[in-house]
Amino acid sequence: MHRFANPGRFQRLAARLLPWLKGLTALAFLAGLYLALLASPPDYQQGETVRIMYVHVPAAWMALFAYLLLGLASASALVWRHPLADVAAAALSPVGAAFTFIALVTGALWGKPMWGTYWVWDARLTSFLLLFFLYLGHMALLGAFDDRSRGQRSAAVLALVGLINLPIIKFSVDWWNTLHQPASVARFDGPSIDPSMLWPLFTMAAAFHLYLLAAVMERMRTQLLAARLRTQRQARFETWQGEPGA
């Protein structure tokens, strides 16, 4: 990992990897959509609405995974001042917010025909809505200060405090007796889903993973270019100040 700590090296690596990542992401989404919409059977209880799960569940997994990465990046930014950590954190929160939004909306669209309601204030849904606001808060804090490093530090502290929400989301369906069903894939005794439904789920999950990687890499490139722009503007300003008669 240390080999990629150098921003210049990261830029070269990202420029080489991104075209491949984009292609792989598109292929994975095509395969995932084919399996989710055409090649898999309807569920015996949920009927065709099970197809919403192939978007909802991977989006929710990615929303949690991206937040875990945001927490790690924030910790290494605060503790070790890793040069890429703040860049990664700023790149992660908009993508994570997008996954969280997708999970919330697709969940509501599944809930209406299956539970009879778009929304209930149960523990899982409420803690997931909080996750969405944590992402939005992180993005807002980053841009809230004239001094960039102050914004980065406050956003990193918020991200770290928000980590406590992750176990609450994960175990909310076990701790509280709520409407949201417990886990059926990440179980100690193995998944309780038929393979014909696991394949579309895992393919879509792979596509979402690749998308996260590509979108975050793209945004990290932009963050690093923006840092170079700021440095050069500063340098020009200082040159201009130093000129006689200026």
Binding site: P42, I102, T106, L109, K112
Partner: peptide
């Protein structure tokens, strides 16, 4: 199976949001 009004918007929202962020 009668659930098109829920399934297609779910896929549509996911597609639009992922494309917009990209």
């Amino acid at each position: 199976g009668g659930y098109g009004a829920y399934i297609w918007p779910a896929y549509g929202v996911a597609l639009v949001v992922l494309a917009a962020i990209w």
